[in-house]
Design a protein around this nucleic acid. Structure first.
Lengths: 98, 98
DNA sequence: CATTTCTTATTTATAATATAAACTTATTTA
DNA sequence: TAAATAAGTTTATATTATAAATAAGAAATG
């Protein structure tokens, strides 16, 4: 049991929560993520951008009912990174992982 | 499944590794932690101090074979915090926890 | 119909954090 | 006694996180 490095993009509470949600949900818009995470809009905006810049998210900006709408989904790389993160952090958690 | 807040003291790679080691080991000195974590001395020094200031570690500074020796052990609060962190982050990881 | 308020964000400013590099103090060895 | 080693600590800087401020248009209100 070594200590694998933890992907710094994912090792952040809000970004991890966003990715965690997107694993289960195909796609989600800004307000959905806002509500589920309890983040502020500013913080969520920044962290979505970082996840997108890292290539972990696909982000489509459209208009829905006349309002801007930001819809996010996990990319293949994002899923791979998340799975890697899960494996890596489990090494730190100490409970028998087998 | 909500997103529990992640204790910011523990949500750091090196501090988490240190605490994770100390859960299994009763006590450990600076060089042991240095070797097991692969950290730099400076970073390890800073993070041990933070863990101590948070009340998660007991730190005894003595001399061993004429050299300064810093020996750390997990406090009761530290153990409790670690257990809480493990539960909290598992909520983010998505694999069935039951 | 103009102005206030709401919606959906983005940008910025600041505070907090992480980390490497430099430094300190003392010991051992050549 | 000078150089190398040991065990840390301090500092300087870069990165990150986050709240506060701003923006641009839509809807409601008087």
């Amino acid at each position: 049991m070594a200590f694998a490095p933890l992907d710094p993009v994912l090792h952040n509470q809000l970004r991890l929560a966003v990715v965690s949600l997107l694993v289960t949900v195909e796609s989600a818009d800004f307000n959905f993520l806002l509500e589920k995470t309890g983040a502020t809009r500013g913080n969520l905006s920044v962290q979505i951008t970082k996840l997108k810049d890292a290539g972990y998210l696909n982000v489509k900006k459209t208009f829905k009912d006349n309002y801007p709408n930001t819809r996010c989904s996990l990319s293949a790389n994002g899923l791979k990174a998340f799975e890697g993160y899960v494996l890596a952090i489990k090494e730190y958690l100490g409970t028998p992982q087998v």
